[in-house]
Design a protein around this nucleic acid. Structure first.
Length: 390
DNA sequence: ATGTTC
């Protein structure tokens, strides 16, 4: 079911930027959905499961499948009290483990602080998850706008912590219930069904935000550090927006909001991240910016392509000198810098289009993705041995 | 992306 008179999607990328054909086809297909009013592909556009990632869509209807399973996924930045001069990455790495398991703190109090209802997925509160999610200690590298940095409460002496995670199994369950009941048809916003989805969606936004805060707290506790949150955005979600004289629904799928002040657009583990200030009125970019470098290779593809030239231990230390904790080999390869496009081009596409300016860059120092417990480590080896025999 | 795996 597609619209007879589709709107023309706008792609924000210079002519020499490489965008996968499949991603553009998905963008065009999505632009044909009924009620679609505008569609934009950002420079990190890449193929997703039916719908592209790195895109924003303005529509008369609400499309849960367009938001995807990781409702509320986003980035939050803290300034820590760790000083860059004294920080010892190798010692810090030794202290970081166990963030995959359930938090042993007072979950009820945490839920109350964040106005969360109990869910069947609360054991995952405070866990990073897989895919491109991470918690990363970063150091401000180059400052282009010192007053803006000071206004944000950031300084170059202290290390930052950037957390990228989402709503884990909760968002997945919300999407699955929608697709089971309604397929991909989308919801009329003036219905009880739409109200029910919005309620669950908005709860997942808060859950995801609370998750990022608890991840930060657990990591900082392990390091004996304290921090204050400076920036927080989500890049998967749908919201009601006043668009000229209409009320429409703005879907962001791997698209950062450009209407909530400065934000960090992270590169891969082997690249700088960019602290940017959005610019412009948001008309051509649907009030959205890229959410990262954008995947170049599909998940599951990287290990075969890379393992001949890079061993897992090579990937544990990046070109910029950052350490990476990731004891899942497939994940380590999938998230290797080579699996991603260059963040520099993504940022220059945005700045050349007049959509943001760079305030500062941040260098990755220590990235935590996942540590295996002793027990699951053994299980993993047994599993691998059995697979080899098959 | 996913208490991802039957």
């Amino acid at each position: 079911m597609t619209d007879a008179n589709p709107i023309i999607p706008h792609l924000i990328a210079s002519s020499t930027s490489w965008i996968e054909g499949e991603a553009v086809r998905q963008l065009e297909h999505t632009a044909r959905l009924p009620g679609m009013r505008a569609a934009v592909g950002l420079p990190d556009l890449h193929p997703g499961k039916g719908y592209p990632i790195g895109a924003a869509f303005l529509s008369e209807r609400i499309y849960p499948a367009l938001v995807g399973n990781d409702i509320g996924c986003g980035m939050a930045l803290w300034q820590t009290d760790l000083t860059a001069r004294r920080f010892k990455p190798e010692r810090a790495a030794e202290r970081l483990s166990g963030l995959e398991g359930a938090w042993d703190g007072d979950l009820a109090a945490w839920r109350a602080d964040w106005k969360l209802e109990p869910t069947a997925f609360d054991r995952a509160l405070g866990t990073i998850g897989g895919g491109n999610h991470f918690a990363e200690i970063q150091q401000l590298e180059q400052v282009f706008d010192a007053p803006a940095l000071a206004a944000l409460g950031l300084d170059t002496e202290h290390l930052c912590l950037l957390v990228h995670s989402g709503s884990r199994g909760l968002g997945e369950a919300i999407l699955r219930a929608q697709v089971d009941q309604w397929g991909h048809a989308g919801l009329d916003p003036h219905t009880a069904e739409a109200d029910a989805y919005r309620l669950a969606h908005d709860h997942a936004l808060r859950w995801a935000e609370a998750n990022r805060a608890l991840i930060a707290q657990r990591l900082l506790t392990a390091l004996g550090a304290e921090a204050e949150q400076r920036l927080a955005v989500w890049h998967n979600g749908v919201e009601s927006v006043a668009w000229y004289d209409e009320r429409l629904w703005l879907h962001r799928k791997g698209a950062a909001p450009a209407d909530r002040g400065p934000l960090v657009i992270p590169g891969s583990r082997g690249a700088l991240s960019y602290l940017v200030a959005p610019m412009g009125d948001g008309a051509i970019n649907l009030r959205s910016l890229a959410h990262g470098a954008g995947r170049k290779w599909k998940r599951g593809e990287a290990r075969a392509r890379l393992s001949g030239r890079q061993r897992p231990e090579d990937l544990a230390l990046t070109a910029l000198g950052g350490r990476v904790i990731c004891e899942d080999k497939d994940l380590l390869y999938d998230e290797a810098p080579e699996s991603y496009k260059g963040i520099e081009r993504v940022i220059s596409d945005l700045t050349e289009a007049g959509l943001c300016q760079v305030l500062a860059t941040l260098r990755p120092v220590l990235t935590y993705k996942m540590r295996r417990s002793e027990q699951s480590h053994r299980t993993g080896r047994i599993h691998q041995r059995r697979m080899r025999q098959d």
